[in-house]
Design a protein around this nucleic acid. Structure first.
Lengths: 338, 338
DNA sequence: TTGAAAGCGCTAACAG
DNA sequence: CTGTTAGCGCTTTCAA
């Protein structure tokens, strides 16, 4: 059976210490204008009673809570990667972290509720909130907001974004450098900004290299392994097969890998496969992945948010991180076309 | 620049809709006794204004918050594994999740503060809390508590525990079945209950098999790769080398693996290595791991907690999961002694 | 240096 | 059906 004692209030402490609630409150908040012995007595009582102040009540009256909120759609590989970076920054700061999730983006009729969760935290309990992969454009909030990898970009609040476009250019250049000319692409989820950026990078790289876009070597996908696996078969089985395939994310890359394997096509000997993102087992399959440093994004977002909370200007270092660290390509595993 | 509009209150809504705050509150809480058109008007205003109720204020008055708290020391592989299971259960429930962490177990002078965080959530904002890998024995809390894998077991509140002892027995039996007789052990962190249980399982299994405990093939460790790597060298290099090594966790197993590799000892051909836990890259190194199903523990803990919150009895199914699912050994990779 | 008292935004009786 | 009112536990003036 769970413990269900009634929680103590500041009143209980006051009574036990024989003082008024306001005096206890002063001690609690480290105010200096309390007599030494009163202070000690109160602290003793607090310790003995195991009293902890009520977050809700406290948040309601005072402004600074030393708490940062993070709203994520779920705890899946993508969010987890970001969480790791956020955690690191939190550990280094004097803020604690409150992660809010419904466990499933779809649970309560989706996107509509993002605003809800943000205000839930920001208006009450936290000093600021970070929101991951949001599709909402505008937020009403008491406290500062930083968005990570938002699906739609709004100039009204700051965000940390993956370098999708430039990452894609880099990958293509690397493939060109290896001698590939016929490079297929697996598209990401329809309407997703990151996916669009990656595709744009692919197309622009082709154009710059003077290679015509060949629609027949473009595979439709939705960031899932399964869809790509299904959609990749016919292209891989045909004579039309490209020498390399660039997938919009690592899951898609795995899908290609599985389809290839089933058809007896060896990766990477017969076919080079690169995938964006680096959060799945793709790397263990010998696939090349483009690391977007999701966790860096989380780390940076916290730093930015803390600056905002403290009303400090964003310094150069953070800007640099923002633009430099977020993408790094690691293509060691790719081979030249057969 | 972050958005910093003043947050709306229920008063603003009431004013805008031309009703009293209590009427708005009723609509907000889905009470039935509100006229159709009043209701609609209020909902419209709420939507237009983008109003969201203040968590802190709401929590203070009403008892049911539909929110479950989870207190974790940090967001590291161990906690993440549990988080995944918690997330799954949350997604299936009508509760949302609030994860609280300081980012680093050591940040504020450690263990002392667990009680603090628990009451922080449980006394105010959540309907119940799950606490991971706690070292605290007693909790004072308003709401129900469930502990996951506590370092010290207290009969006063329920906990979900990994089957450390039985898992260890299973591993040993499997190794015996393969013909191993000289089986080394890498100990876990000193004073950790799980580590002790695993070691006890090792010892008891030996005894049951009529094999004397050989202290010389026991390696000291602390659950880290590095320590084990350092400590394993001399044993692996000696003639005394066992045919199999059972490590208290996966990190330790990796440490053994690295040391072995460096000495030109092939795993698993020359030496079988099994590790408890299954959250690191151990599996990709071809090491055998004992899956404790950390994520299952998280899943179960949420289910238990929800039962407590709803004052429902724990049903058989949960009990079964509690005792049956938590450990599964998967030893396919182990070979017979050379 | 301390206490009394006024709310923070909200919900829940209690009247009407 | 709706408004008035009394707090929830806390911080923060304002007085003493």
């Amino acid at each position: 059976m769970p413990v269900k004692k009634r929680a103590m209030t500041i009143q209980d402490v006051a009574k036990a210490a024989g003082v008024s609630v306001s005096t206890v409150s002063r001690v609690l908040n480290g105010k200096v204008d309390v007599a030494r012995d009163t202070q000690e007595r109160i602290l003793e009582v607090i310790a003995k009673l195991g009293y902890t102040s009520n977050l809700a009540a406290r948040s309601m009256r005072s402004h600074r809570k030393n708490l940062i909120g993070l709203v994520v759609p779920d705890i899946m590989p993508y969010s987890i990667e970001i969480l790791k970076g956020v955690n690191r920054a939190i550990a280094e700061s004097k803020f604690d972290l409150l992660v809010y999730t419904t466990g499933d983006a779809q649970k309560n009729g989706a996107v509509l509720h993002e605003q809800h969760y943000v205000s839930l935290l920001s208006n009450s309990v936290t000093d600021g909130v970070i929101i991951v992969a949001s599709a909402t454009a505008e937020f009403i909030a008491d406290a500062p907001i930083v968005a990570i990898d938002p699906h739609v970009i709004n100039p009204n609040y700051p965000s940390v974004q993956g370098m999708n476009y430039h990452g894609a250019l880099e990958v293509m250049e690397y493939l060109f450098g290896l001698g590939h000319r016929r490079i297929g692409f697996v598209k990401g989820r329809e309407g997703n900004v990151s996916a669009q950026r990656r595709f744009q990078g692919y197309k622009d790289a082709l154009e710059k290299a003077g290679i015509a876009l060949d629609e027949t070597i473009i595979i439709h996908g939705d960031f899932t392994q399964k869809t790509t696996y299904k959609n990749a078969h016919s292209l891989l089985a045909s004579d039309n097969r490209p020498t390399a395939i660039f997938a919009a994310n690592d899951q898609s890359a795995i899908g290609v890998y599985q389809a290839a394997e089933e058809l007896g096509i060896n990766v990477p000997n017969d076919l080079s496969v690169v995938g964006f993102d680096n959060i799945s087992e793709a790397k263990y399959l010998g696939l090349t992945t483009v690391d977007q440093f999701l966790s860096e994004m989380g780390y940076i977002a916290v730093q930015m948010l803390i600056k905002f909370i403290n009303d400090e200007p964003l310094d150069l270092e953070i800007h640099k991180m923002q633009t430099k660290l977020v993408v790094r390509t690691s293509c060691q595993r790719l081979l030249q076309p057969a």
